[in-house]
Amino acid sequence: MWKLIAGVFLFLISYGIGWLMCGRLSYEFNMLSGISADLKTMHSAVKYERKSLLELTTMLADRGELTEFWHEMSIRLEADCGVMAAWGFASKLLKGLNEKDMDTIDAFFMNFGKGGAETELGRFELVLESIGESQGKLKAEYSDRIKLIKTLSVLSGIAFALLIL
């Protein structure tokens, strides 16, 4: 009886570890999707409404994907601390992104609002394209890796359980 319970327990632990690893992997993907969706909303609001950065961050803090990040940005901007400083504080909330994507987004925000509408819209398109590419790569890797991790976690769980039994 105890062996059966221990076997089931080991199986669950192994499955849980696999589930956590999948979660970590999907976090980066979800974060990129969130940024991409919010940047698309920003792009439209700049293109058709010419909303200022403060208006954009306030809007996204209310109904964006990464509400916590935009809320932090809007608070800092409202306190007149400048885009670079606001980004410096808020970017700490964008965890889990790889270095290349982080650098792209960092460069985008560090220079945001300094140019005319055409320049800004062009920069939006560039950053969205770059994020889109990363998303595509991650998606291809993500589905394969998740399948592998899930299969391995289930198989290793069964193996541990069998060893105990």
Binding site: S52, G82, A117, E120
Partner: peptide, 14 residues
């Protein structure tokens, strides 16, 4: 200029 434009030159371009 950035303070006047509220960090958004494009918004006051007109």
């Amino acid at each position: 200029l950035h303070a006047v434009c509220m960090n958004s030159v494009y918004a006051v371009q007109n």
